[in-house]
Amino acid sequence: MKHPFERVVQQHGATVLRVCRAVLGVQDADDAWSETFLAALRAYPSLPDDANVEAWLVTIAHRKAIDVIRARERAPLPVAELPSTGAAPAKDPDLWALVATLPDRQRQAVAYHFFAGLPHSEVAAIIGCTPDAARRASSDGVAALRAKWLPE
């Protein structure tokens, strides 16, 4: 039996937003989030009852993020700087801008493993690499973030 979709949004909306922000930056994250949840709503009735909903959502978000990145590459916008959290309070260190400095695979691995809490094996399946590579990418990514977050 399926729970109301509203419950899915309440339970996983924040995680999916963080994943989208980590992979795409704050600016493009809204579009990816919206397309992820609309696609999820469409497919929801046929999702197996025992499915891992968070992993399912992150997989959809990953594909939507790739779509956004491809669209961005086809029509590059004149963005001089990394996307920044324009709406965020000034005291909030710009985590998303830091994450944006990581290479693609590290960014994805950090997003899916640390922000969404998926095991390396699932991260590997989503990104399309070996579990070892996923583990290395997320630990390298986090090490780089820590170094930038906590400079001496």
């Binding site: 909030d92 260190p93 973030l145 820590r146």
Partner: peptide, 8 residues
């Protein structure tokens, strides 16, 4: 991930 979670 970090000492002291980032506000975000």
């Amino acid at each position: 991930i970090f000492e002291g979670a980032p506000p975000a």
